[in-house]
Amino acid sequence: MSSVAICVDDLSVSYGSTPAIRGVSGAFEHGSLTAIAGPNGAGKSTFLKALMGEVSATGTIDRGALKARDIGYLPQASSIDRSFPITVADVVCLGAWKHMGFFGGVSSKATIAMRQALQDVGLVGMGDRHINALSVGQFQRVLFARLLVQDAKVLVLDEPFTAVDSRTVHDLTQIILKWKQEGRTVIAVLHDFDQIRATFPRTLLLSHTVIGWGSTKDVLTDKNLNRARALAEQWGESTDQRQYLA
């Protein structure tokens, strides 16, 4: 097996006539922890969606031997309807989708994995809670538990720590580090540079195009960050708005 998990070449995505990201090329290596950083509206989520095949993109994405089921995706918490009457256990069990599919029942194996995952994220005994009754941090733990049950080789996390309390950030960071030890590949959109420096060895700095992609120390320099900011402003406010609407 090659050392590269996902390789992108000249990847571009547009919303209507508005380009969101342009000419992104690079590779995520097996077992690497990569943070994706960049200004707001600079195409970070779009890039993840392109990786997941959710938006149509030009250029190539080479997932190698990875199948869709090998990639675990953590959506932005805001994209989830939390008023829906469903329990924590039900959400976490969805992680066993590749075993149960659209119609299959929840196996006892999946139930055991669900309990274990809840324990790992520090939500023991919360399985019967309604997801609406959880705090933002607790809900993020639930989504991580679902990823644990999914047991995916590659984990794609879209803003896992936005609006989450520091205790939860700490606990969930331990899970990410455990994933690294297990040889899984983690790709995460993050905003907190200190956290990126502390946990993520590699960084992709994105501002509609690649500003830097490599070891975090080399990428997160003042020069690069200023360039990213300048480029994002140059891209224009109207672009951001249209992107938001799309």
């Binding site: 997941m52 869709a68 990639i71 995706y73 994209s79 829906f84 659209f102």
Partner: peptide, 18 residues
């Protein structure tokens, strides 16, 4: 199942191929 997941978390359904 897919109907409910599509409602709660459409991104997840797409990610698992629905």
């Amino acid at each position: 199942r897919p109907l409910i997941v599509e409602c709660i978390d459409p991104g997840f359904l797409r990610a698992v191929g629905g």
